[in-house]
Write a protein that binds this DNA or RNA. Structure first.
Length: 509
RNA sequence: GCCCCGUUCGUCUAGUUGGCCUAGGACGCGAGAUUUUCAUUCUCGAAAUCAGGGGUUCAAAUCCCCUACGGGGUACCA
């Protein structure tokens, strides 16, 4: 256990899982698997006021979809449970008290309102109020109050919090696996609350106690935690756990594609790409946020794209399977600066992966979609269609737009193309062609139809583009689609003749 | 305000120990080719004086300092 790599992903269940969080989890996963270590899921629900029903289930489902499996934790179990901090509530107090006994922490009786008032006052004077070594003597706590008064308050059941006591004039130093050596002056740090008046620990206390108890070897988390890392390191030291303190790696953030700041919930639907792995409906407002899964992304593509947003293996390779990522990942090669999400690149990644999906697998997915549209067809036909149009799609949900004409005959014809191609006399030519096509025997019709067309165009000295495009217009209704002869093969004689007929009747020029 | 972290093509980035960088790749963009259409694909191209300024050195994108800009933090939120 001493040297075993154990990492954790520790989200709080306050809503859907942000894609930046997914990347953090991915990096943890890759690091754990590469080192034959453990990847745990711990739910950090110490703020009961922010609890959102369904969020925990969402998180578990999201990782299931992504194919990133936890070895231990909520939903799985393990030897170091419970893995949900609310269920660990009773064990935190003794640790906070231990720190008080050691003189590393103290009781504070100031109410949230009093402190808010202080902050307001400070703000009006363009300064900032901070609960620290300079101000704590003038506040209501066990450092400033006489001991018997403190005892009296505690005995009376007065509400209190426990705060960490930063000693003045110390330099706190630690190493970050991505950023190197980091220093901070203790006198600039505030006495953070470790234990709240509701009997719950804050993130700071809980994450140190749990990481210690769960034998976490590496803490890989977002950059937003870097400023509080000196506190965390100080806590390990105060507890006397420094020799087993995990190593830290603070990841750069995912930024908005356009403006400034980190990628947020609203950016996604504003800019037309998902910020969450799965679609999420807010239980209170009912507001829906789109997800990668529902937008037609393949989980492998999302994983690959996310892995490359802030990491690369130093070569020019960009497509990596999960297994390759596990083998090649390294914390040292993670970049230090934030990365803007690039929708176009994400599309490209998905296109790459969509091409790898077999026609039969893709056909199954597409058939389901067709069924919801009440389109009667066969898996055979769908598979043929998918084979023809797959490469023109980046997402599985583009299949319909690229192949609707295979299932529904056109009712309108692209006007511009008509003007350009369907010249005077074309109706007559098409009628002749139609008659000939009709005369061709059913057996191997498509091939014979092709032979006929080629020969017909040549012997009548017609323009190939002109004829084929008009045929396409008549059958497809537009200038899109794969090879015309492939379309004829899939649609078959009867359908082609029917569509030609309709077109000749409706297009009157 | 204060603290911490960062800064190479529009975007993601290569460049790790200074010289092979007239800075490479990918996405996107432009042009051409292929395709009877559209898309795909292929080829070519434009695109970063390495944020700016000072040093150090024979030599700096690479080391040091300053400035600017960006990001994060500054809650009884995580």
């Amino acid at each position: 256990m001493e040297n075993r790599v154990r990492v954790r992903f520790a989200p709080s269940p306050t809503g859907p899982l942000h894609i930046g969080g997914v990347r953090t989890a991915l990096y943890n996963y890759l690091f754990a698997k590469q080192n034959n270590g453990d990847f745990l899921l711990r739910i950090e629900d110490t703020d009961q006021t922010r609890f959102v029903p369904g969020a925990e289930e969402y998180i578990i489902e999201a990782f299931k979809w992504l194919g990133l499996n936890f070895d231990e934790g909520v939903g799985i179990g393990g030897d170091y449970g419970p893995y949900k901090q609310s269920e660990r509530k009773p064990m935190y107090k003794q640790y906070a008290l231990d720190l008080v006994a050691k003189g590393k922490a103290y009781y504070a009786f100031d109410t949230a309102e009093e402190l808010a008032q202080k902050r307001l006052e400070a703000e009006s004077q363009k300064t900032t109020f901070q609960y620290d070594c300079k101000t704590r003597q003038s506040l209501r706590n066990s450092l400033s109050l006489p001991q018997d008064e403190v005892q009296r308050l505690l005995d009376n059941g007065e509400a209190y919090v426990i705060r960490f006591k930063f000693d003045e004039g110390q330099t706190i130093e630690f190493d970050d696996l991505i950023r190197g050596h980091i220093k901070m002056e203790s006198s600039l740090l505030d006495d953070k609350v470790l234990y709240k008046s509701d009997g719950m620990p804050t993130y700071h206390l809980a994450n140190i106690v749990d990481d210690h108890l769960m034998h976490i070897s590496h803490v890989i988390r977002g950059e937003e935690w870097l400023p509080s890392c000196p506190l965390h390191v100080s806590l390990y030291r105060a507890f006397g756990w420094e020799d087993t303190m995990p190593k830290f790696a603070h990841l750069p953030l995912l930024l908005k594609p356009d403006g400034k700041g980190k990628l947020s919930k609203r950016d996604g639907d504003r800019l037309g790409f998902p910020v969450f792995p799965l679609q999420w409906q807010d239980p209170k407002s009912g507001e829906i946020s789109s997800g990668y899964r529902e937008s037609g992304y393949l989980p492998e593509a999302v994983v690959n794209m996310l892995a490359l947003l802030g990491w690369n293996d130093g070569t020019e390779q960009e497509i990596f399977s999960l297994e390759e990522l596990v083998n090649k990942f390294s914390i040292e090669r993670i970049s230090k600066h934030g990365a803007k999400f690039d929708l176009e690149k994400a599309k490209w990644f998905n296109h790459q992966y969509l091409q790898k999906v077999s026609n039969s697998d893709l056909a199954k997915v597409y058939l389901d979609e067709l069924n919801t549209k009440n389109i009667a067809t066969t898996i055979d036909k769908v598979e043929q269609v998918v084979g023809l149009i797959k490469e023109r799609c980046s997402f599985s949900n583009e299949l319909w737009a690229q192949s609707d004409y295979f299932f529904v005959a056109p009712t309108t014809y692209a006007e511009k193309a008509l003007k350009k191609r369907w010249k005077e006399g074309m109706g007559a030519i098409m009628t002749t062609i139609s008659e000939h096509l009709k005369a061709i025997e059913d057996n191997d019709w498509a091939q014979k139809a092709e032979d006929f067309l080629m020969q017909y165009i040549q012997s009548n000295e017609l323009n190939m583009g002109q004829i084929m495009n008009c045929l396409r217009l008549a059958v497809v209704g537009d200038t899109k689609g794969p090879n015309m002869l492939d379309i004829m093969r899939v649609l078959g004689k009867d359908e082609i003749l029917l569509r030609l007929d309709t077109a000749i009747k409706n297009i009157n020029l």
